[in-house]
Design a protein around this nucleic acid. Structure first.
Lengths: 249, 249
DNA sequence: TGACAGTTCAAACATGTGTTTGAAACTCGT
DNA sequence: ACGAGTTTCAAACACATGTTTGAACTGTCA
């Protein structure tokens, strides 16, 4: 923790669009390379040596421009976040006056896009997916700034699709059921590709998945509306399982 | 890669229940400690020094008894796998003659149990959950021996709940929708606890989740049966998104 | 007791990785 | 062209981690 370097970094950060020599080309190249490596292997597995090599920079460059590896990661995350926000607008162009069904469809499609596309424009989504599973210090901020708003949006859409009197827990769980279906394809990709090596996750498949998850979820919500408190077949909380889950080996 | 040590390991493995001094106590302690550490932090983050310290063994013990770190991991995985198979029987005690609804309920509850319980008896489930997201060389075997059979079981249950003529893709996607809802709670725990710090994942919550996911999924499948090829509101594959997903930065 | 195989141990080894250093190279205003 | 401020660089540092080594220890059997 050398004060001089910290100051260097602070200055370098301030003049991010300044007039310095070559307009911060190294800095920019580092951000670019880092985004690639971080999305591919995650924060911990990424090495600053690979990032610097890709950026054509010296290993000391990261510490000079960003303080340390975590600083670079944080910077990549916000940069890509701003980019993603412009690429994938929150409700994918569907207005708040649209029907709840249309809004849910838009939400699901947009979410799937962000999570599935292995595209340059989409590194943020894949970094987010990784943060959820293998969090770094950045997760707290991400939950506050990205995930919580999305959760709120989904909550209002779901509530609009359920009868007015629905209790909050049910509405919340329905939201999680929808999100779960989507994130499955982000998190379990290694398993899915092994189970079905042939299937490619291209645009056609994105459409298929959007269509299916929307249909599945809307169908469920409709039935929930129809019989608001059906006792959900097989709730029977078996005493046997209660035993099993507690037993020591 | 010293031949001598590899042979040592082979011998040590063979006599796993042998009559050696102290009946392989060190070996056993290593397996126990390793299972704890691997479930907590995963394969890569686990250090053999921590494992050995917990087991009260020397760092060289792992190489002596298991060849290397990966060998230990593989051994832990199979040991815990056998244990889990006895703890959580495949269909949770529901016979194949039971109604598809009952079988689905049992499947969901059993799956949730295996994935949620932070119990000694449950380390296998948590290691599996981790393998899906952050695979090691062991995943191929696990897909073959554990995941594929589960997927087949779920497939037959789902098909029984859908009309006979349903196309295979739809049935498959329904299965994935169910699995996705369940695994969400395994993979996104860091996010969930930040969104709702108060909620505890105890037995009551397990019952609630089982009940909800079952109800949600059965409702969806019922509606699917009712109108087999409803056009799923909002399939409209917007040209705009097609543009967005391809655009470079 | 003494040889022997199996096991444990402290220490060292080899490598990978984040970080720091001090000097050289570069840019730009004067 | 000069010099201050900025950036880059090769090298080294500090540390963590998987693995290996050779000696010491332990129990068994002759």
């Amino acid at each position: 923790m050398c004060l001089k370097l910290v100051l260097n970094m602070a200055v370098a950060t301030l003049r991010t669009e300044g007039t310095g020599p070559s307009f911060g080309a190294t800095r920019q190249a580092l951000l670019e390379a880092a985004a690639d490596v971080f999305t591919r292997v995650g924060f911990r597995q990424a090495t600053i040596r690979e990032i610097c090599q890709r950026a054509g920079a010296n290993v000391a460059a990261i510490n000079y421009h960003f303080g340390d590896k975590a600083g670079l990661y944080s910077e990549v995350l916000t940069t890509e976040g701003e980019l993603a926000q412009r690429r994938f607008p929150a409700e994918a162009g569907v207005s708040k006056q649209a029907s709840p069904e249309a809004r849910l469809t838009a939400f699901i499609r947009s979410f799937l896009q962000r999570v599935l596309a292995e595209d340059l424009a989409n590194r943020h989504g894949r970094m987010m997916a990784r943060e959820m599973v293998e969090p770094t210090a950045a997760l707290d901020r991400l939950v506050r700034e990205v995930i919580q708003p999305q959760a709120n949006l989904l909550a209002t859409i779901v509530r609009a699709l359920l009868p007015p009197g629905t209790d909050q827990t049910t509405a919340r769980l329905c939201g999680l059921s929808i999100v779960g279906q989507i994130l499955f394809y982000a998190h379990c990709r290694p398993v899915i590709t092994r189970l079905e090596p042939r299937r490619a996750y291209d645009l056609v498949e994105l459409d298929r998945l959007t269509s299916h998850i929307t249909r599945f979820s809307l169908a469920a919500l409709r039935e929930f509306s129809r019989r608001p408190d059906s006792p959900a077949l097989g709730v029977r909380r078996a005493a046997s399982s209660r035993r099993a889950i507690r037993s020591k080996r």
